[in-house]
Design a protein around this nucleic acid. Sequence first.
DNA 1: CATGGATACGTGCATATGCATGTATTGGCA
DNA 2: TGCCAATACATGCATATGCACGTATCCATG
Lengths: 155, 155
Amino acid sequence: MPKREAAKPPSPADDAVMNDMTPCNNLALRQAARHVSQIYDRHMAEAGLRGSQYSILSKLSRLGALPIGRLAEAMVMDRTALGRALGPLERDKLIKVGEGPDGRTRSVSLTALGQTRLAEAAVLWRKAQDEFEARFGVVEAESLRATLKRVVNTV
Amino acid sequence: MPKREAAKPPSPADDAVMNDMTPCNNLALRQAARHVSQIYDRHMAEAGLRGSQYSILSKLSRLGALPIGRLAEAMVMDRTALGRALGPLERDKLIKVGEGPDGRTRSVSLTALGQTRLAEAAVLWRKAQDEFEARFGVVEAESLRATLKRVVNTV
DNA sequence: CATGGATACGTGCATATGCATGTATTGGCA
DNA sequence: TGCCAATACATGCATATGCACGTATCCATG
């Protein structure tokens, strides 16, 4: 039963900081997300977008106009969280949030400016994607995405 | 070349919302992280903690007192981000942020109350962990964590 | 047509996260 | 010893995220 001694020479406490294999799935996911997000954010910054904002514009482009709730679902995001995330995008005229067919529903859609910006950002996204996959591996990345999709769909 | 027609009967736009296999690693990671975080947060709420806070206390417990920068490293988190995240924990007396040996360094450590709370929360963490792994698979989860660790270490 | 439950949102609160910048200390060197 | 680069933080800003609630609509019924 080691693990309990207190007086250990002040030496390699360094390893401890990196070596532990966290058993927590939540922590593992958040760390990876934080880490990778920085890569995408760094590239996307050149277009004045966060990686997360690019994701929203991108998703919106692929799905076309749809109510907030639906978009939130597609983004695997809380409805209210998405609602606020739309703020900056609407302020910058990249998206339009108008009345939906239903009196309660609101319709979110890309503006022309939004489409343009998305196209510009797509180039930067590709760079970020390449940077990540160059180091992590293209095949491994595809496998990772499939696994993560299962995480979202299964649980 | 399908994919381009505009007038499709207003039918299964439903699929579109769920079916697309996003090629973006960043989005995939964030979605999974959001999704899983909710599970852990929900359980941890009973102890008045966020899943992320539990992670910090846990990490702190395993590493012992150490400067903010080091803890941030271990958490794979921006130093300033962690600095602020410590606020609520310090306010609730779960951790203590005191002077470090170095005039500039600050030392973060668990308080007795923090250790107690951590122990209580550990039970809830186990429930969350079980809930996730019951559906996703224990083996698969372990594999996922290993992969995510590689994401953090590699890139 | 009035009404209760279901829908689709918006708000108040509180945390979580990072970047750019500014500040205080340390340490090494001319 | 005096000065500068490196180190370790703190702050101002701006997003990102969710929960608990409260509100406006819609809809199916009696």
